[in-house]
Nucleic acid binder design. Structure first.
Length: 256
DNA sequence: GCCCAGGCGTCCC
DNA sequence: GGGACGCATGGG
């Protein structure tokens, strides 16, 4: 077991922030988190965290996953006083971090997410894992799996196209990390079923390109209702993705 | 039965 | 280049 203290870190908020789909509260303050083939149980008590894993796993896997070396208080301090939506968002989401999730899992998850709701996205991903003997399928696994009876709707062919492109290295995490956000977006949109929104989610949650700013129905609602239909300047910020996540979590928490 | 969901591909203009 | 439309599925 590993004990740490951390601020701007709340497992409940992160689990319900819509950026990950395999993080569940198993008892009060106690969460099980999966990231591709790794998993851990964490107990949170305020600013105290108990990771049920070795020191080595914490240092090599989970410290990075939870982005614990990034100062989110600093990000919050850059929000203008005049931006009432983000001011409320940073209070409501005071424990939000942008996870550094597995690239492959993020691609699969957000292709499934299109025109779908979060509870059902979770069910679809769980069904994929169940079908693969409890493990999240690798690209090679996915290529040969039967998908048409997992409740994915019309998204089966999108996942097969993704798996092919990854297996044949038409899409590679290494390359996407080495190129710019704009170039990565264009590359990702070559995958069937990946448009602007999903590509932004992959850039933000799977590649940690923090300028990526996914615009979904909730963000459109934010722009329409909280910014008088004019998109705020911060969507061009180098950390637009974090601000977008505060806006999403706040808006969805209030109305969803 | 409706409407909606962290949208996108395809048509059509 | 942009705007309608259909798309599978299940929750509310």
């Amino acid at each position: 077991m590993v004990h740490i203290r951390a601020i701007h870190f709340d497992l409940y908020q992160i689990a319900n922030s819509g950026q990950c789909f395999r993080m569940e509260e198993i008892s009060r303050g106690k969460f099980r988190v999966f990231n591709y083939r790794n998993d851990v149980v964490i107990q949170q008590d305020g600013q105290d965290f108990f990771f049920m894993c070795s020191d080595e796993d914490f240092e090599t896997i989970w410290r990075k996953y939870f982005d614990l070396d990034t100062d989110y208080i600093e990000f919050d301090s850059l929000i203008p006083e005049s931006d009432l939506l983000l001011q409320k968002g940073k209070e409501f989401g005071s424990g939000i971090r942008i996870l550094r999730q597995d690239f492959w899992e993020t691609c699969v998850s957000f292709i499934i997410s299109q025109n779908n709701n979060i509870p059902r996205i979770k069910k679809c991903i769980q069904a994929l894992c169940d079908r693969n003997g409890g493990l999240f399928p690798s690209p090679l696994n996915l290529q040969i799996m039967r998908l048409d009876d997992l409740g994915l709707g019309y998204r089966d062919e999108y996942l097969y196209d993704l798996a092919d492109k990854v297996v044949f290295e038409r899409i590679s995490e290494r390359e996407l990390q080495s190129i710019s956000y704009i170039e990565a977006m264009n590359k990702l949109k070559e995958i069937k079923g990946v448009g602007d929104k999903v590509a932004n989610c992959i850039c933000l949650f799977g590649l940690h390109k923090m300028e990526a700013c996914p615009i979904d129905v909730w963000m459109k609602r934010v722009i329409a209702e909280d910014y008088h239909v004019v998109a705020p300047n911060w969507i061009q910020s180098p950390i637009a993705g974090y601000y977008q996540q505060l806006a999403f979590y706040y808006k969805r928490g209030c109305e969803g």
